[in-house]
């Protein structure tokens, strides 16, 4: 047999036959990792350690002023709380915010996509721990500081630098953590 046709493809080398198994092994290791350490689904802010960006918010209620970037750099650390009257977890975290205020924490609130009378009713019912409350009807401040939901809380140090982000409602066990972060930010 004199066949002029060259062979294509050539016989695969032995090691190549094991390649699929090796790739599959890599896949298994990868997904095992994913299964064992359930991924953090929250989108964390990348603004930690960076100064607050420029912003300026109108007051959300009659008896508290709004605020702007300049108001955040007062030499004292502050807690910035993103909340809304329509958000149930925000009501859940209200007692913890009051406790933080009792402990001497200065808290500024931003009411997201909210109406004045609703915010006032919310504060009347759940207490008002806020020194200032700004209104943000288009979530603009969230995009600026990397917040993706309500409620979220940010520790801002005296120079106006974002130091810590807490995602979701503040539960009683989180209060000491936040106080610690406030203390660190005050140093």
């Amino acid at each position: 047999m004199n066949d002029p046709v060259p062979s294509v493809p050539p016989k695969a080398p032995r090691w190549a036959l094991w390649l699929p198994l090796v790739l599959f092994g890599g896949f298994v290791v990868l997904v095992l990792f994913g299964l064992l350490r359930p991924a953090e689904r929250e989108v964390r802010s990348k603004m930690i350690g960076k100064p607050m960006p420029e912003f300026s918010l109108q007051p959300a209620v009659a008896d508290r002023p709004g605020f702007a970037r300049a108001d955040m750099a007062t030499g004292q650390p502050r807690l910035l709380n993103i909340f809304a009257s329509w958000c149930i977890p925000c009501a859940v975290e209200a007692p913890q915010l009051l406790a933080l205020k009792q402990a001497g924490v200065q808290i500024d609130g931003v009411a997201i996509r909210d109406q004045r009378e609703d915010v006032e009713a919310f504060l009347a019912r759940h207490g008002n721990p806020f020194a200032r409350i700004g209104a943000d009807n288009v979530s603009a401040i969230q995009f600026a500081i990397g917040s993706s939901g309500v409620p979220e809380s940010f520790v801002i140090d005296g120079k106006g630098v974002i130091r810590y982000q807490h995602i979701g409602e503040i539960r009683p066990e989180h209060v000491p953590v936040i106080l610690e972060k406030m203390k660190e930010a005050g140093r």
Binding site: V5, S7, V8, R14, L17, W18, P20, L21
Partner: peptide, 16 residues
């Protein structure tokens, strides 16, 4: 596949 594929002899040849 890794064990046995090597013993399944390759088939007819052809041009590209």
């Amino acid at each position: 596949f890794g064990l046995r594929a090597g013993t399944v002899t390759e088939g007819e040849r052809f041009a590209m």
